[in-house]
C-alpha cells in the first residue's frame, strides 16, 4: 500500500473561528479512509480545502507526491481528484446520460474538445459502463432533476467517478437515503475501493465501522484521533466527544 493523498497541517479560518485547524493524515491507495465527527466539526470544509474550493490559510495538500496546495478546483480535478457533494450538485435540467458524458469527456484527448460529441468514443464507453455499474441504465434518458433522491445520490457518485480520478472524495453519499439504499451504497463504495482510493465522510456509524480501513475523527476543526475502526472505537476521547452524544 502506498500513500496517495497527504494532508499536512491543513487549516482555514472563517472570521474568528478556525473551521479546520492543523489537520494532518494520509489516505492510502485502494483503501477507504473515512472522516467522522459531529455536525459542524469541519469535515465538509476539509473537503473544500483538499479539492481547492476554499484556499487553505495554512498547510499542504499532496497528491501522489505532487504539491497541489492552493490550486483552483479545476486543476485539482485534472491532477486526479474527483469529488461528490453533501448537497446534491448535478445538472438537473440535463439527462443522466449527459451528466455522465460531461464528466467523462475529460478522458478524451484535447483535440476532441472541438469535434462533435459522438466522436468522443472513450467518454461514451465510460458512460455506458457507469450507468450499468450504478444501476442507472433504465434512467439514462431521463432528466437528472426527475430522479428519486436515492438515484440522484448515486448519480452524484457516478459523476465524480466518471473522470477516473486517482482519489475519490465522497461527502456523505448516503445522506437522506433509506436504510436499504444506504446498505446498497455502502456495498457499492466498498466495491469501488478495489480500483480507486476513497476518502469518505459518513454519519452512519454502522457503515463507517463496516467499510472503513482507516478512520480520522474530527472535532471542532481539529483531528481528535485516527486509526483502524477498532482502535478508534475504543478511544476514550472519541467516545466522549462523539459516540457519547449518539
Amino acid at each position: 500500500m502506498s500513500v496517495v493523498l497527504e494532508v499536512r497541517g491543513l487549516g482555514v479560518r472563517f472570521g474568528g473561528i478556525r473551521a479546520v485547524d492543523g489537520v494532518s493524515f494520509d489516505a492510502e491507495s485502494n483503501a477507504i479512509t473515512t472522516i467522522i465527527g459531529p455536525n459542524g466539526a469541519g469535515k465538509s470544509t476539509l473537503f473544500n480545502l483538499i479539492s481547492g474550493m476554499i484556499r487553505p490559510s495554512s498547510g499542504k495538500v499532496m497528491l501522489r507526491g505532487v504539491d497541489l496546495t492552493g490550486r483552483p478546483p479545476y486543476l485539482m480535478q485534472r491532477a486526479g481528484m474527483g469529488r461528490s457533494f453533501q448537497i446534491t450538485n448535478l445538472f438537473f435540467e440535463l439527462t443522466v446520460f449527459e451528466n455522465l458524458r460531461l464528466a467523462a469527456q475529460r478522458l478524451e484527448t484535447t483535440g476532441r474538445f472541438l469535434l462533435p460529441v459522438r466522436r468522443s468514443e472513450r467518454a461514451l464507453a465510460r458512460v455506458h459502463e457507469l450507468v450499468e455499474r450504478f444501476a442507472l441504465a433504465p434512467k439514462a434518458g431521463e432528466l437528472a432533476g426527475a430522479l428519486s433522491h436515492g438515484e440522484q445520490r448515486r448519480l452524484e457518485i457516478a459523476v465524480a467517478l466518471a473522470t477516473e480520478p486517482s482519489i475519490l472524495l465522497l461527502d456523505e453519499p448516503t445522506q437522506g437515503m433509506s436504510h436499504s439504499d444506504t446498505a446498497d451504497t455502502a456495498a457499492l463504495i466498498r466495491d469501488l475501493a478495489r480500483d480507486v482510493t476513497i476518502l469518505l465522510i459518513e454519519h452512519d456509524i454502522g457503515v463507517v465501522m463496516d467499510i472503513s480501513n482507516h478512520i480520522v475523527v474530527m472535532h471542532q476543526g481539529r483531528k481528535l484521533a485516527e486509526g483502524a475502526p477498532a482502535v478508534v472505537r475504543a478511544d476514550p476521547a472519541v467516545k466522549s466527544a462523539y459516540f457519547g452524544h449518539a
Binding site: 479539492s51 483552483p72 479545476y74 480535478q77 450538485n89 448535478l90 445538472f91 438537473f92 469527456q105 459523476v159
Partner: peptide, 13 residues
C-alpha cells in the same frame, strides 16, 4: 445548468 459543478469536471468556468 449548474455553474458550481463545472470546476470539479476539470474546466475553468
Amino acid at each position: 445548468a449548474n455553474e458550481r459543478r463545472v470546476p470539479s469536471l476539470g474546466y475553468s468556468t
